[in-house]
Design a binder for these strands. Structure first.
Lengths: 196, 196
DNA sequence: CCTACCGATCGGTAGG
DNA sequence: CCTACCGATCGGTAGG
């Protein structure tokens, strides 16, 4: 699969923004690693912020699509849906660490309206996780702890993966996802001895 | 308690670095919010990086001291020590959001040697958490899951708090800490039905 | 702690 | 996609 120059710019910039942060990365850095002159970058993009926006939109779509695919399985138990959502999230993160961590950490450098759009998308996504947890509390044997706090704990743990995951490390993405899913599902399952 | 100008610079810079990031914050921004001229900042600090370093060192010390205080209680069970370490960590984070999130996210802008020192300190700190979990697996009824992965899940969840915590929000730092502690301790407790 | 100033680098444009 | 260039801003210094 051949990458167009435009796609190359996004993936190169994604890696650089992840390494150094958006503000500390110059358009010359991006151009150099793409094999062109600094000013030539503007033959492909309108501004540095547009590169960031393109990366952020790409990541947002991948997270959204992954969660949507799980939502279709209305026949599954809450625990099984939560497991699949965790697996899908981990897969998106580990698939493109640059894109994911830019989406998670660099969106504050976007313009006001774009930043607001990102926050709204993240909010919707978080609500999908909370929904599954609340479903499990109503009918799937999940303990009735504060669903909002558990949701944040899970998502922060999953997002933290892009801070330490290495493709050549001990655990594969699948192993990490399975461990995390079991950990949090076990945490949510109310034990028989628990008071009602 | 009166803040010296030097202390004011650190707390002002901590808040700004948290809001905009280190690279996107100018020394003029810090000076202005401190009520002095841009160049006057250099009457108090040698460089912009020294301000970052001072904040990072302060946070590192607070995390270290908080965990050390818990380690002294060798009479407690692993679960109780883990609970206290979680409570201590959440307290440090919520006590000074700027300092904590700069420590967690902006250390990559330090010089090579300072960055290495931060990574070493974080590694030591992480090992303390893993130690308690492994203790619990040996003698405290904790399930024998991958201790490294659980440790990262817990720390990433705790560190994520400084991304959404608001002093005027629903949950107090103590409530958050207690919920998180119960969640993860419950996740670690092996159920009687579990195979050995 | 201030005013005045410096070289370097930034994002971006003109014209080909 | 390149060369040449621009105004703005950056971290930091000199001298008081």
């Amino acid at each position: 699969m051949v990458e167009t120059r435009r796609q190359q710019i996004d993936s190169v910039a994604g890696a650089l923004f992840r390494e150094r942060g958006y503000a500390a990365t110059s358009v010359r850095d991006i151009a150099q690693r793409s094999g062109i002159q600094g000013a030539s970058l503007y033959a492909h993009v309108a501004s540095k912020e547009d590169v960031l926006w393109s990366i952020v939109q790409g990541a947002a779509r991948r997270f959204h699509d992954a969660a949507s695919a799980v939502s279709e399985h209305t026949d599954l138990t809450a625990a099984d849906r939560l497991r699949r959502m965790i697996q899908a999230h981990v897969a998106v993160v580990t698939d493109d660490l640059g894109q994911a961590s830019v989406f998670l950490h660099e969106w504050r450098h976007l313009s006001d309206s774009r930043r607001a759009a990102v926050l709204a998308a993240r909010d919707t996504y978080e609500r999908r996780f909370r929904q599954v947890i609340e479903d499990g509390q109503r009918s799937g044997g999940f303990a009735t702890v504060e669903a909002g706090l558990v949701t944040r704990a899970i998502l922060d743990a999953l997002n933290g993966i892009c801070g330490w995951y290495r493709p050549d490390g001990r655990s594969s993405p699948t192993q990490i996802a399975d461990h995390y899913a079991e950990l949090f599902i076990h945490a949510l399952k109310s034990t028989p001895e628990d008071p009602p």
